[in-house]
């Protein structure tokens, strides 16, 4: 599945290991949240980078104890209209998670700046969607809006800050 970072389609070096199958040495592995407790510690010890894929109703606070050990958190977007992931990302960042945050599923290019603003680093979409919305659309979307009114969200220029600086 295509992965978008900084507006560009990039290679995805993470994989989702099938349960029960041995992991390739050094592979970066995404585990389902339910498998985290049982498998993550051993995998990290064996030198794997470990990420987790949560569901839409996971309480972000439940991941807090893992923040230091997780290199990636994947938040699903089952439909473009389902915006729960934006609140999950915001809360993860405010709780102090500093690793990579990935939105996965059906996000469209027009939501890209919203996702970036809530703290997502990368977006993973389907091949079919990537065919309709190729790389230039994402690059363009990233520059569609340059200003935001809300504070505490990145990376757009904040209007309140700019306004006060201009005074």
């Amino acid at each position: 599945m295509p992965l978008i970072k900084d507006g560009h389609f990039v290679a995805d070096d993470w994989s989702r290991p099938v349960e029960g199958e041995p992991a390739v040495a050094g592979a970066k592995l995404i585990l389902a949240f339910a498998r985290l407790e049982a498998e993550a510690s051993d995998l990290i010890e064996a030198g794997h980078a470990v990420g987790v894929e949560i569901t839409n109703d996971t309480d972000p606070a439940a991941l807090e104890p893992w923040f230091d050990r997780l290199a990636l958190i994947v938040v699903p977007f089952p439909r473009a209209a389902d915006g729960r992931g934006f609140s999950i990302a915001t809360r993860l960042r405010r709780l102090g998670y500093r690793g990579e945050l990935r939105a996965s599923g059906h996000l469209i290019a027009d939501q890209y700046t919203l996702a970036r603003s809530c703290g997502f680093d990368t977006v993973e979409i389907s091949d079919a969607q990537a065919a309709r919305q190729p790389e230039p659309h994402w690059l363009e979307a990233e520059h569609a809006m340059s200003l935001a009114y809300q504070r505490g969200y990145g990376p757009l220029r904040n209007i309140l800050g700019a306004r006060w600086a201009a005074q």
Binding site: G83, F86, L114, A115, S117, C118, Y149, Q150, Y153, I159
Partner: peptide, 13 residues
């Protein structure tokens, strides 16, 4: 009005 305009978190409620 300003705060809610294009709110990154609350545009897909």
């Amino acid at each position: 009005r300003q705060w809610s305009s294009n709110h990154p978190e609350f545009s897909f409620l």
